[in-house]
């Protein structure tokens, strides 16, 4: 599959398999298009060439009602910002997909919402508004909402970014438990290497529009690629240089001072 934004190629003929029931991580530096990839899988963006199949269906050949039916049946997504509806309370946010897509009686919706909120540990926060939640709590509520219809697959967009260690630990545990206990296919897009690698079954590392490396966490850890080693180890210098390309420092300094004298 290839995808471009204007003249910039985001993905150049990449090929990924996400196994059912497994936790697959997609890692890469900022700006490599990881979130774009999730939007392509979800059918919010269309690839220039190639196809994306979810549960055997070509996402981009579906009509809008069929795509919505596929999303409802198979996909949940946790956005980086949480994407909670700001005019609804925590309770109403989690109840929202149930009210829209089911004809369950109010009592059944009430029980389901409380159960989903209990899974993420926020049953007690059900009456709060999104503005009253911390970033970590907002993501947990968004997670409860994403699983409210029990999708077969859930996509996490940078779930750990900007979280304190406790919130991060909670999210890591929740994502792992949801995958293992409920057997949900999970796709985690992240550049938080340690946290993501610790729970993943399989990892794709992408950079500059290509899949640089893929394999189990152990295989990635022992990769022979210098670039992958730098990325996984968080090293400041390596194939991705510390310095942005520039002329030698002395040239710049001497050039500036001489031009200062000239002035």
């Amino acid at each position: 599959m290839s995808f471009s934004r204007g003249s910039r190629k985001i993905f150049d003929n990449i090929d990924l398999d996400i196994e059912r029931g497994k936790l697959t991580a997609i890692m890469g530096p900022s700006g490599t298009g990881k979130t774009t990839l999730l939007k392509l899988i979800g059918g919010q963006l269309k690839p220039d060439t190639g196809t994306i199949h979810v549960d055997g269906e070509n996402v981009h050949e579906l009509s809008q009602p069929a795509l919505y039916e596929l999303r409802q049946r198979t996909m949940g997504m946790l956005f980086q910002s949480g994407a909670l509806l700001t005019d609804l309370s925590v309770y109403e946010n989690v109840a929202f997909p149930l009210r829209e897509h089911t004809s369950l009686p109010a009592s059944a919706i009430h029980h389901l919402v409380l159960l989903k909120l209990d899974v993420v540990g926020l049953r007690g926060a059900r009456n709060l508004m999104p503005a009253e939640l911390s970033g970590g709590m907002a993501r947990r509520v968004a997670l409860a909402r994403a699983i409210s219809l029990d999708p077969e697959m859930i996509m996490y967009d940078e779930p750990f970014t900007g979280q304190d260690p406790i919130s991060m630990g909670v999210l890591v545990k929740l994502i792992y438990d949801l995958n293992k206990a409920l057997g949900m296919t999970s796709v985690v897009v992240s550049h938080d290497v340690n946290e993501t690698a610790s729970i993943s079954d399989y990892i794709y590392v992408i950079s500059a529009g290509k899949v640089v490396q893929h394999g189990t966490p152990v295989e990635i850890e022992h990769s022979s690629s210098d670039w992958v080693q730098q990325f996984m180890g968080g090293l400041a210098d390596g194939p991705v240089p510390f310095h942005f390309p520039a002329s030698p420092l002395m040239d710049d300094l001497l050039g500036e001072s001489s031009s200062g004298v000239m002035r």
Partner: peptide
């Protein structure tokens, strides 16, 4: 603002138009 905070995208992914 709903667009910039991904609320509209979130709805689409919840299969709500």
């Amino acid at each position: 603002l709903m667009k910039s905070t991904e609320q509209l995208s979130g709805m689409e992914m919840m299969a709500v138009n």
